[in-house]
């Protein structure tokens, strides 16, 4: 299954291994904190580490699935919605 959804930035980390995909994700997040990021990775650790990192850094993993070109996986990561602001 491939994933759909809007994104602002693509990070292609296929071919790199743990912890490089997460470092790339954290760097991009620091540069563009409001951006939704499509991260492509084929490191087996990424499947666990992306959701765990998102929980640690208050990001949201919106979707995960196979990359559109069939090589590796795709992860769609967005800033957390600030629920307090929503209430205001």
């Amino acid at each position: 299954m491939t994933i759909d959804g809007h994104y602002d930035v693509v990070l292609d980390e296929r071919g790199t291994v743990c912890p490089m995909p997460i470092i790339a994700l954290a760097k991009q997040t620091k540069q563009t904190p409001e951006a939704t990021i499509l991260l492509l990775a084929d490191d087996p650790a990424a499947a666990s580490d992306i959701p765990a990192w998102c929980a640690m850094r208050s990001r949201v993993l919106i979707a995960a699935g196979n990359a559109a070109d069939g090589h590796g996986q795709a992860y769609l990561i967005a800033p957390a919605q600030d629920s307090a602001l929503d209430i205001l």
Partner: peptide, 24 residues
Amino acid sequence: GSSCVAESLTPSHVLVAMGALTQG
């Protein structure tokens, strides 16, 4: 239990099952 330490180069099944960060 990180993947780079394992012969299989996959992270520990324990860490994966609990949804934990596996690096470092």
